[in-house]
Amino acid sequence: MTTHADPHATTAPAEELLNRPATLTQRIHSVLHRQPALSPAIVLVLAAVVFSLVNDRFYALQNLSLVIQQVAVIGSLAVGQTVIILTAGIDLSIGAVMVLASLLMSKLVADNHWPGVVALLAGAVVAIAAQALNGLLVTKIKLPPFIVTLGTLSIFTAITLIYAKGQTIALQPGNILMWTANTVSLGQLNLTNGVLIMIALYAVIGYALRYTAWGRHLYAVGDDVEAARLAGISVNRVLLSAYMVGGLAIAVGAWILVGRVGGGDPNSGLNANLQSITAVVIGGTSLFGGRGVVFGSLIGALIVQVFVNGLALAGIDPNYQVLAVGILVIAAVSVDQWIRSVKS
């Protein structure tokens, strides 16, 4: 006698699995995957609350003004670093290029008496050209971004030291290069023009990443370069454009740096390379590419500065401030690994 299998016998378990309510862990994972900047935003709010309880001066508008102003340079660099990391790349030379561009701008004005606007444009051209070199080495010679930018870090640092001859260039107030240091008062909250330029930079790049074909192609390349190539995306062009957009962000950072230090200083921005990466990682952008939002990097930069400022107000040894930042980086990367590994 032949028996007929129940057609629903094998499909029922599958249907039950699909209809089973998601666990709390799966729901959290799903939300964090869709909103990469959410977890750093929560950390920022919690840190602000804790430090305000430790010292009520933390929420003083003068102190908040200082925190925001100190973020402007690294925040600008983090925009360029974010765009590059979204392609699964990295730029270890970004701070060195910024210092070179800032020195060039300052020296052209102070020593060669160039108009400030022309010197600013010259510095921007140098920053974009330096990043184009990084991009060409990655796309044409197929060298890993880590190795390329590690090498150009030394090259650009050496060029800066040779060009500056160990000298610091001071600029007089009133020059357009110093305009970024001018303050705009919103009540007791004092913001520099450099902060406003940084915010504008985030708005422009954030819009481009979210609403343009270039942004979609950038995410696609970072997520799966072979799939992007099969989909007809010009991978090399996208990668090169990412580094050149990074050069534009560097030029903005260099302009803000000139206003902040009052000219060009070859010793400024010594840790800017790693600080920009730190801001991006803490801000929720994946080092493996394809996931993250540029505004998360601004939150990441704010988190670092809030921890440094809050711990200082609490009277904590500066060495513990560095320790806290290191823990934040490891925690951020761990969260990213979890988001990538957990199956929803």
Rank of each mutant, 00 (worst) to 15 (best):
L323T: 11
R237Q: 13
A9P: 04
R216D: 08
L177S: 02
W338I: 13
E226G: 10
E15V: 07
Q81K: 09
L24V: 14
V49M: 14
T168D: 11
V148M: 08
L298P: 00
I28K: 02
S268M: 08
H33M: 10
H217K: 08
E16L: 13
T183G: 00
V204P: 05
A88D: 07
E15M: 13
D224R: 11
V333S: 06
L313T: 04
G116S: 15
A170D: 12
K165Y: 08
L61R: 07
A208F: 12
T183Q: 14
V67I: 15
P115W: 02
K107H: 03
L323M: 14
A127V: 10
S286Q: 13
V261N: 01
V294Q: 01
Q131W: 00
L239Y: 01
L201P: 01
F307P: 07
G95H: 09
V225Q: 13
G95E: 12
S93R: 05
T10R: 14
V308P: 00
T2D: 15
G310M: 00
V261E: 05
Q337I: 01
T10D: 15
T149N: 03
L189H: 06
S76C: 13
L196Y: 05
I330Y: 00
V225T: 15
L257T: 01
L177E: 02
A101H: 08
L248E: 03
P36S: 09
R291G: 05
A208H: 00
V294F: 01
L53I: 10
N236V: 00
N309D: 12
M98W: 05
G187C: 12
L230Y: 12
Q172L: 12
L92E: 04
V83M: 10
V67F: 06
L196R: 06
L189P: 08
D6T: 07
A88N: 13
Q70Y: 01
F156M: 07
L248Q: 00
V245K: 01
P7H: 10
G151W: 03
K140M: 12
N267V: 08
A332N: 09
P318R: 12
G151H: 06
I299Q: 04
R34N: 12
V258P: 04
R210N: 14
L77R: 05
V138N: 02
A312T: 15
V304K: 08
V126N: 07
L53D: 04
V221K: 03
R229D: 06
N236R: 15
Q81H: 09
V258D: 03
V31I: 14
